[in-house]
Write a protein that binds this DNA or RNA. Sequence first.
DNA 1: TTAGGGTTAG
Length: 659
Amino acid sequence: MLKCSAFSSNKTYMLKCYTFSSNKTYNVRFFTTFAAPATFPDSDFSDDTQDLVIHDKDLLRKSRRDSGTGLHVLDLIHRGSLEPDRSLYNTLFKKCTLLKKLDEARIVHAHINASLFMDDLVMQNTILNTYCKCGSLDDAHNLFEEMPVKDMVTWTALITGYSQNDQPLNALVLFPQMLRLELKPNQFTLSSVLKASGTGISDKYGRQVHAFCFKYGYVWNVYVGSSLLDMYARFGRMDDAWLVFDKLESKNEVSWNALIAGHARKGEGEHALKMFSGMLRQGFEPTHFTYSSVFTALASMGSLEQGKWVHAHVIKSGGKLIAYVGNTLLDMYAKSGSIDDARKVFNRLERRDVVSWNSMITGYAQHGHGKEAVRWFAEMLRIRIVPNEITFLCVLTACSHAGLLDEGQKCFELMKKYSIEPQEAHYVTMVDLLGRAGRLDQAMKFIIKLPVEPTAAVWGALLGACRIHKNMDLGTYAAERIFEFDPHDSGPHVLLANMYASAGRLCDAAKVRKMMKESGLKKEPACSWVETKNAIHMFVANDDAHPQREEIRKVWDEIYGKIKEIGYIPDSSHVLFYADQQEREAKLQLHSEKLALAYALMTTPPGFTIWIKKNIRVCGDCHSAFKFASKVVVREIIVRDTNRYHHFRDGFCSCGDYW
DNA sequence: TTAGGGTTAG
């Protein structure tokens, strides 16, 4: 709050300002284009005041430094010292928007309501927009309802407000209402409506808006086009996104970023990286948005070398590691297996937020360092970083994978202290934690006591644990509960059949297989990928299509012989559909990850770390074989399955056989 | 006066 007095000469005003907050008095020379005010007393000036010089164009900058909104100007207006004009109010609203000062915006609004601008449509639109930018859609909506006259900008401002404040449905409801009034949307309206259309489960609405973009002639506009391709990309329709991108009349960083982000979200790292190179070739400067999407893409590829190359770009660009880029960068290093580099990035971050901590905890957990993950969680709490629901999920998963039963239970209890309501994923992980640790009865009691109806995923976690600990009765019960949700889900059928097979109950396993056959259920085909010499090779079990199949099998046969010599015993319970023991053992050696390993050994130099990715959980027999293989071939083998990472080195796996 | 793109888990 400022108290001011002033005098003027030729549009230069000398203001005496006293701030109650800091108990300081300022002599302020205020150069302005405002009309000359009435006379001012100059007797208030004292000698012990500080001098500031402010030009009206500097008002925004100066008051930003003072962390105020410059509302003292309103006092001047109120005292008749200044005659308000549009640019003064606009400056104040800009300031409120910038600092998200809702209360101040309300004060300026009240002031305007008592001024000549009371019924000014443009001014009303500005106020409405300020409320939206300050996050108060209630204020914006109230004003919208009160406005006797509304134009296209009024509607667009409110639509944009809802779209930008996570209320897409409200935005989508307003759009047709606006059209019914025969107000013609422009590029601002359409890009906001498209942003709102990018949420939800279907692109049906977005496609309709696409038609409106054609109708009104904005489809090739870079703003509308970028929103349009982003909308398609969010629904995974990259072909449609590309069609829009290719036809844009001009492209900018945002169009490129939207496309890169689309590929990154789909886990199409290669495409995202190609786009990044293309963007550089065409002379576009990558932004924070670009880098965070590219690192997300690289994280999904686990491609450390390419990750380092892009990291070098960021360093060359000289930018600071802001939260988004820094967090995705450290996640990339963690997911690429280099937890040390991830920690270095973490240490260099300008600001470490809950996402930075979660990423480190997950990094440790996924690479088998459960205790380290728990230690980081404790440190995070010690320095009073407030955990979120993802933090707890990360820590619970870490505990579950590392067999840290007590720590996991304590972590679950701690959620109450932070007022975080457990979600389905937390319950699933708790059942997993108890079940893997062999506490199947406790897991069952936990499910019974759940405050919500247990889901198929909860029963699935119990079934998985029953398979590990060979508890047929409880496993069968869990499987039956899952079938009640979805009798056509092949996953639990396979798990159940595996469970019977590994317990030697081949007749029961055969019954499940028969049931699957009769219902037309097919097991999801297991695939493994291996990256060599900048190309990605995919393998499926019993792969007969690969041009080098003979050589691949020869290499694996050689390894198979060697690992058997040092203790590998094939576990044929992981083969479902063959009754003959010899045939089962033969099929076991043709699992996709084994073929991928053989191919990687053929095509990479000695000592080179081998990276394999798998679309489902790594098979138990392959896990055992890889441990022995890592010793025989003297290589580090990293397998990333849907659950976690396995670092096989010198006969051991980082997961400690607990996955 | 109104517009578009980015992070952690499962």
